[in-house]
Design a protein around this nucleic acid. Sequence first.
DNA 1: ATGGCAACCAATGGTTGA
Length: 268
Amino acid sequence: MKIATWNVNSIKARLPTVVEVLKTIDCDVICLQEIKCETDGFPYMEIEELGYQAEVFGQKSYNGVAILSKTPIEDVVRGFPGNEDDEQSRYIEVLTGGETPVRVASIYLPNGNPFPGEKFEYKLNWMQHLKARAETLLTHEEAVILAGDYNVIPSDEDCWDPKVWADDALAQPESRAAFQQLQWIGYAEAFATVENRSHSYTFWDYQRGAWQKDHGIRIDHLLLSPEASDLLEKVEIYKAARGLEKPSDHVPVIGHFSLETDRSNRPD
DNA sequence: ATGGCAACCAATGGTTGA
């Protein structure tokens, strides 16, 4: 079973690219972020034609997350239970996987810039809600995959020049500590298993020729419960997506898991 | 030289992102 996370930076502006990439990477579950459309405005028909069921938590103009799955989706959670007042759509969680259930969340963590300021405080507060949800999920002892755009550069090795990011919300010690806390409570960062992973990136800015110069950052992550971590076979960054026509500024991160998917049980 | 890109909504410019 392959599970991907990808910040598409507008599903409508990106639809031809998204369809092409989804066909190429051929994953069982795809977590999307920054779809930038309302739940009813999602291009369900085009996505369903690729064999996916789509569950969407949208928002007009900005943010918005979705999960696409080839195996039937059972439970759906939109936003954090107990934090329904948050008007930004940044979290959706489903149970899928067929006979071998796996709980998957698509996360679009707040950027937090400018630092310091209200937006940074919102980011840290949102990360506390995420931690609380993540702790609850651990008690179920299921395979859980928290996938998304975390907007956190975990260490200086995850960017091309730490000095450039020193005053940025993505690299602040508080952001890194909150991300690390998710690991301390019991989640494994999937990419940590990769050898020679220093200076591997998932985002390259549209500006300043960042892609051509390989001035990237690694901010898209897969966090795994122990049950999911046991099944991890490998992780890859689908870097080729950044070189396509009309690319997103992020590329997919794909986790391969030793789970057999029951393809006979798929929606038409 | 501190902007340089892309998408949004609204409207020919302002806001947001990272």
